[in-house]
Structure formats: C-alpha cells, structure tokens
Design a protein around this nucleic acid. Structure first.
Length: 435
RNA sequence: GUGGAUGUAGCUCAGUGGUAGAGCCCCGGAUUGUGGCUCCGGUGGUCGUGGGUUCGAUCCCCAUCAUCCACCCCA
C-alpha cells in the first residue's frame, strides 16, 4: 500500500501524544487556570504571551546543545524562506527572548508568568505528552534568595488553595555558581572515570552529555557507587552556600517543609544555584509536578546584559491528573444550569427562545438553556432533567394564551406552579436566589 | 529510542475457525401537556488497518497504526 493510499484510507485522528480536551475535562482546566490567574494577581505577577514557534537557535543556545530535548525531542522544521523554526519545548527561553527584545530587562525588575502548550517528541505515557501545557513563572533582576523564597511560597500557596499541599513534597538543592558547577562537574567526571566498570550504558552516555544527571539514576546496582560520589553540596562556592542557607532559613521561618536532595539536578543546562522540584508519588513515574531554579547566566548567554533570574514551570496535565486522582475538584467547578426553557409547539418554542433572551438580559448571572430541535413534550422534559437545570420553564398553548409560564422543580419535591410572564425575572431571581 | 500489555457498538466489556453479543447511552412506546423508577421495542459494528494461512479469519501468523505501563527523558 502506498503512503498516499494509506493516508486517504485512514481515519484522520489527532497526532500521537496530542490530546483533545473534551467537555468532561474542560471544567477542571478552567478551575485550575482561574486559581492560577488570581494567585498571580495576588502576588503582583504580570501575564505575558509568547509565540509557540521560535528560531531553533534560541532553544539550542539556552537549553543546551547536548541535552536530550535539543538533540532528539524538538519539533523542528524549515520555514518557507529556509529559516529553521522550532515548536517551543519549554517557555523560559521564549520568555527571556521576549523580555530582552522589548526592553523589559533594562534597569528594571520583572515578575512574569505565562501559560500555554509546549512540544516535545517523546514516547507518550501517563502524565507525559507530546503537546503538554505549562504554567511558567519567571523573575528577572533579583539576585537575592528572597525572590527564590517568594517563588516557592507562591507555589506552596497554590497547592494549599488546590488542596494539594499534603500530597506534594518540595525537594531542594543548590548547583552553585556557574564556575563552581563547572569545577564540580570536572571532579565528578574524574570520579566516574575511575568507576567506569560500574556505570551502566545510559550513564556512560551521560558522562559526556550531562554527568550531573548520573547522580539521579534509578539503577540500584549503581547506588553504592553514587553514594560515595563527591557531593555537590561540598563543592559550593561561599556565596552560593550563603544564598542557599538564607533560602532554607526563610522557608523554615515560613513553615514550608522541604527535603534537601543533593542529587537533584535539573536537566536543562542553564540552571545555577537554587534548583527545586515539587513531586508526588500519586502519578506513577512522572511524579514531578513543578520544577525550576535560578538561571543567572541565561540572559547574558542569549546576548543581554548580565541579569539574575529565577523561575519555575508547572505541568498542567500532571496537576489536573493529580486533582482528579485525589478527587479535589470542587463540584462548583462544573457549572450547572439554572433554567431549561421549552415549548410544546412551534409557536411556544419561539416564545421560549425569546423569553430566554429576556431573562438573560434581566439576570446576567442566570444560566439558561433553551430547548432547540423540537421533539415531543415528554422528550423535552427528559432533556430538561438531563441538563441538570434546577427549574424547567414550560410553555404551551395555555401559557401562551394567559401570558404565564409553568415552573417545574426538577431537583426538589415541590409542586409545579404557574407564574405570570410579567415580572418573571424578579420572581425567578427570588426563587433561585440569583442576581 | 528500548521492553511489555491491549485494540470488538458512542462508552465499559463478553465471545467463537463457519462474517457477532451484554450493560450503559441514544430514540420510540406503556402515560392526549410532565423527567427521575419500572416494563416493552428500536437505531447503531467494514470485530484498529493492511497482508498471509485456510473452502472459510473477528479468532491463527506477519506487518503497521493507536492507547496504556515501565525504561529513558522531563512538567
């Protein structure tokens, strides 16, 4: 079978690892996004929105040429003029680019956030998709540990709001300054080279690409050797140590629990000093729900003035999965109808449609659905019930003749009643307690 | 990229080498203008796709695509 034939015969479906968000799920997302938006406003962070596509070089230069993300996970293609473009695999690089390009970093500090889709060509799995969504938070121009602490407090407040705080763990580490990190890296590589025979295949590969990540290995055969490896914490420069100690002291004072994980190494090259991760054990192997750190060198690396920066990103799919798993989405997050209007015949149906408009005009908070598509009276009432509405408003010949509506209580044991259409809004407002 | 499991109705799943079933959903009826419960009836499937073996394949074999789980990676 030719490729063309295969394409034409095949049902068209979504790209692997890229999901549709359907009506039963969208309320969860709206709930989460609303929580995030108000939280950011409460901390004085401003939203930015960047394009989904950037020049490939932006990611290669920021994330690191030899990381897995850049080497084999990016959606990269040529634009019609031959430029190499890439669907963003993460948001920080774009955000830095945007902030630099528009002078947001010129002698000022910034607290920014964004959200949107990211793209990585990985094998899909629970909590890991090729198009996934992140909320990113980035701050610029602030070098002290106070802003590191603020970001962690902000994220902790979000977990608290969502009811997740007791289900996630904060892991902390410091990578030291870029210089200290580079020196430690050399020490570590030297150590591993002495124990080459103990390294598994993956780790040998990482010896040249990202030796720090070997520390993170799950291979039990390597555990003893890794335990004996030189510790990052012992190789911190004095300033980084001070920075880290100030951060933990602030977290202690704020009552935020954490675990210092000397093996916590973020995968992206641009991190230095503080790195942290919020993890959960409730999601299987993709347990990192939020992660970030300091990247003081990145702005300069991308051609800007040296600018301290810290940020983090949350994985929205993972957080929503967690909220679902733990049944933490409140019922109010799924909005239900107040009224379902229906008419017995064509004339009454048209009247119902118009009455719906009148009521929405008078009571903006009212949630009203008008039956469309005809059908028997009985089937229309069934639909009213299924809609979840609290009341059904029935219109028929009698109601049209006397200018009334029949109000049927769908959720209460209460006799239906007749109300005049004059002043109906006021009567319903009282009945439903809706403004 | 590697390993394993699974693809049958819109959904959740039975099933057999002789071209298919249940429950839920949906539609209609029992109830001339009244939902939820009950009863009766009905719509709906190229058994993921392509090929092979066979008189005959949804079932056996191969390939492919998709989903899930783990590795890897990471949010």
């Amino acid at each position: 079978m030719s490729k063309e034939q295969a394409l034409s015969d095949k049902k068209i479906q979504a790209i692997r690892g890229m999901n549709d968000l359907l009506p039963d799920q969208s309320p969860y997302w709206q709930y989460f996004e609303a929580q995030v938006q108000t939280l950011m406003q409460r901390y004085g962070y401003a939203e930015v929105r960047m394009p989904i596509v950037e020049q490939t070089a932006l990611f290669a230069r920021s994330i690191g040429e030899v990381t897995d993300i850049v080497e084999k996970e990016m959606y990269t293609f040529d634009d019609r003029n031959g430029d190499s473009l890439t669907l963003r695999p993460e948001g920080t690089a774009s955000c830095v680019r945007a902030a630099m390009q528009h002078g947001l970093l010129h002698n000022q500090t910034q607290r920014l956030w964004y959200q949107g889709p990211m793209f990585r060509h990985e094998r899909p799995q629970k909590g890991r998709y090729r198009q996934f969504h992140q909320v990113g938070v980035e701050t610029f121009g602030l070098e002290g540990p106070d802003i590191d602490a603020e970001l962690i407090l902000l994220s902790a407040r979000l977990w608290k709001q969502l009811g997740l705080l007791e289900h996630v763990t904060l892991e902390l580490n410091s990578l030291g300054s870029l210089e200290a990190r580079a020196a430690y890296r050399d020490t570590l590589v030297a150590y591993f080279e002495q124990h080459l025979d103990l390294l598994d295949e993956d780790s040998r590969r990482r010896l040249t690409s990202n030796p720090l990540r070997i520390l993170d290995s799950k291979n039990p055969d390597m555990a003893a050797m890794l335990d004996a490896a030189p510790q990052l914490m012992d190789h911190l420069d004095a300033e980084s140590r001070e920075h880290f100690e100030a951060l933990t002291a602030t977290l202690d004072a704020a009552g935020i629990g954490y675990v210092i994980n000397p093996r916590l190494v973020r995968g992206l090259d641009y991190y230095s000093r503080t790195v942290f991760e919020w993890t959960t054990s409730a999601l299987g192997s993709q347990g990192t729900v939020c992660a970030g750190g300091r990247y003081d060198g990145l702005v300069e690396q991308l051609g800007g003035k040296p600018t301290p920066a810290v940020g983090f990103a949350m994985g929205i799919e993972r957080l929503i999965l967690l909220l679902e798993t733990l049944d933490l989405v409140p019922d109010e997050a799924t909005p239900s109808l107040d009224l379902y209007l229906l008419g017995m015949d064509a004339a009454a149906s048209r009247e119902a449609l118009l009455l719906g408009e009148t009521l929405r005009e008078a009571l903006p908070a009212l949630r009203v659905q008008v039956h469309c598509g005809g059908g028997s009276f009985k089937s229309q009432i069934k639909k009213a019930d299924k809609s979840g509405a609290r009341l059904a408003l029935l219109l028929g010949e009698n109601e049209l003749a006397e200018g009334s509506v029949t109000v049927k209580f769908l959720r209460d044991e209460r006799e239906q009643c007749s109300l005049p259409r004059d002043g109906l809004a006021a009567a319903l407002s009282e009945l439903l307690n809706v403004a």
